[in-house]
Design a binder for these strands. Structure first.
Lengths: 216, 216
DNA sequence: ACCTAAGCGTAACGAACGTTACGGTTCGGA
DNA sequence: TCCGAACCGTAACGTTCGTTACGCTTAGGT
């Protein structure tokens, strides 16, 4: 499995990227039920080429997940001069970015496929986890620690603090989306929910109590 | 689809329950890849019987989800005499119960199947949601409101308050389990995590600040 | 101009699996 | 005792789909 593309590093060519984008589009449309034939037809390439490039079906799915993961970008933050305002805005942006990413049809479809494959020993779920939840933690923990160093936050373990923040903004959104709940419409209130979660996190872990703003 | 068992109410017979338990066991073992043949063999029944009972494969999966959902029980609480100690204990039990349920192999497998089916328009995900997350909310919100009436809690919307509590104890546990993360071992620390989440929830929404206990 | 590699389109093979059909067996009731 | 319904075990059918193979076209290098 996965002959032409080794498990790490090698970036797919432009043509290959176009094929992987087709796979993503088909994921969003039909979920896991993506056949090699449908990919080849939509991408106007031959199945033989698919097998030459990706080895087998699992390799193609693997490359697709990596391709999508390589595109999620984070806006780096300036940790040197950090005050309560910039910290709050940074946390709100992180939360809002996360909420908007996991609400996108592409992300939902990708997570569904990864979860379906995770039933076996497939590493797809781990890849999604590594590039989603854990990548977020790696980016956010330095911010939290800088906030603590600046006397703005108080906590012992940055991992625990991050998981608290994660729970406050993620709540039940992801599981409801994955299970197909249509009564949830997070796209409209992302800003408000991110602000709310940040407010609550600062109420729990802020060194100085936030002045005059009640957690509605 | 689903001929013999109408979509609601009718309870399966003991023999049918045994078959559904076999399906659950196979879910836990092999995930979504459960064939009618494997079910018939393990359950020592004929495939013709399966089709007579459940209509088709989707009907069988449907009945399985309902069967498992019918078994999750909640311990009712006495809302009349509620003080801070009993409220705290009640919240901790809810959180601990939820964490232990979603950590069980059966629940993980069931959620994976439901999420996989949710890609199409299948109602499996909605059923799981209805009997999991929403059932929890229906049970917990009266408790929260009773706590508010007793002057122990302060919040505007019980739904919002519940989602905050949900986020505080669920955090990233469910998505990590679903994606196959093996570095997470919630079974050992469920009590501590439930107590921690309850502590944080009371810090956010408790009317009287909890005396002398720092949120570690 | 020729050769080779890459790639497209299509056909075909084979396995897995949902679904149906059939013959034999058990068991409760008339 | 006899009948019929329910059920078991197994075989068979048809579809889907992953995988492979083949013929043809195109482009770049010598």
């Amino acid at each position: 499995m996965n002959v032409a593309l080794p498990v790490s590093s090698t970036e797919p060519t432009a043509r290959q990227q176009a094929v992987l984008d087709v796979v993503l589009a088909l994921f969003a449309e039909q979920g896991d039920r993506v056949t090699m034939d449908a990919v080849a037809r939509r991408a106007s390439c031959s199945k033989e080429t698919l097998y030459k490039w990706f080895g087998d079906r699992e390799g193609m799915l693997n490359a697709t997940v990596r391709w999508q993961a390589s595109r999620v970008g984070f806006t780096p933050v300036d940790l040197a001069r950090l005050d309560l305002v910039s910290l709050r805005r940074c946390l709100e942006e992180f939360a809002a970015n996360w909420l908007s990413v996991i609400s996108s049809p592409t992300s939902i479809a990708l997570n569904r496929v990864a979860i379906g494959q995770a039933a076996g020993g497939a590493p797809l779920g781990i890849i999604v986890l590594e590039n989603g939840r854990f990548a977020l933690g790696k980016r956010l923990k330095p911010v939290l620690e800088a906030g603590r160093d600046a006397g703005l936050l108080a906590f012992e373990d940055s991992e625990t603090a991050f998981r608290t923040f994660f729970g406050l903004f993620a709540r039940d959104v992801q599981i409801r989306l994955l299970l197909g709940d249509r009564t949830i419409q997070p796209s409209l209130r992302i800003k408000e929910e991110a602000a709310h979660a940040t407010q609550q996190f600062l109420a729990l872990h802020g060194a100085t109590p936030p002045s005059g703003v009640a957690s509605a």
